[in-house]
Design a protein around this nucleic acid. Structure first.
Lengths: 126, 126
DNA sequence: TATAATGTATATATCGGATATACACATTAA
DNA sequence: TTAATGTGTATATCCGATATATACATTATA
């Protein structure tokens, strides 16, 4: 488990952990059923508090990526990608809703929004 | 100048002032060249500090809605609606960009985004 | 059963940004 | 000169976010 904590970045530690583990799961480097390092081990290794690793794991659990069992450990859950997709869709919908609201307030027509969306979607090659 | 401050809302005072004055300008209740109440007057009337009214006016100035002159007062600027529209467009573009990025990460096609946008645009009657 | 591993819960410390302020200063108009 | 206006500096306060220590609960296993 190669997790790298950068103190300089300004990004919170627990967030760095969450992001890196999420990425590993989404990229398939961690698969369903795989055991994560115990909260204590990871904390020891990163020289941080158990509370912080716990917080990271809690977030991963809330997002449906892992599951933790007292006395046993934490493990990668199945269905990650589908779940992730659903959650992202909700966020995307919220963003589009706000964009639409603002647009209407300024009398910006739907077609103009569609055009912008097309440009920014095609623009950034992934 | 009817400005109503609600302490219960949790919204900061300076924000409430900004929003209400912006609305008055956009709705035409305040027109180009109209004088705003002096920072001290408004502060007195609302029973708050001059610093807070100043902060609100600063924000309105940054956003191009008004202009302040030492010793004279604060006045409504012209070109508000166009400027406002431009700024809103930038924000909208940023939102659409992030939505598009997230969508691509989950392999959500552009057409699906377009559909969602169409729904949320039509949905909330303005 | 005893021990050592695991995750969990409570209470606390710290930091930083956001909000609001007082007071002194600078400029303009009458 | 006076009284109005906006401005600048330094400060107080609050609150959420972050991170922690310590004690507790559960599970596996020697």
């Amino acid at each position: 488990m190669d997790i790298i904590i950068s103190n300089a970045s300004g990004e919170p530690i627990y967030t760095q952990i969450v992001t890196q583990i999420k990425t590993m799961i989404l990229e398939g480097k961690l698969k369903e059923g795989d055991a994560l390092p115990s909260m204590r081990n990871l904390a020891m290794q990163l020289r941080i508090s158990v509370i912080t690793t716990k917080r990271a794991y809690e977030e991963l659990e809330r997002d449906g990526f892992i599951e933790s069992y007292t006395g046993k450990g934490s493990f990668v859950k199945a269905q990650n990608k589908e779940l992730y997709r659903e959650e992202q869709l909700k966020k995307i919908e919220a963003m589009l809703t706000e964009a639409a609201d603002r647009a209407k307030q300024c009398s910006i027509p739907l077609t103009e929004l569609q055009e912008i969306l097309e440009i920014v979607y095609g623009g950034t090659e992934s």
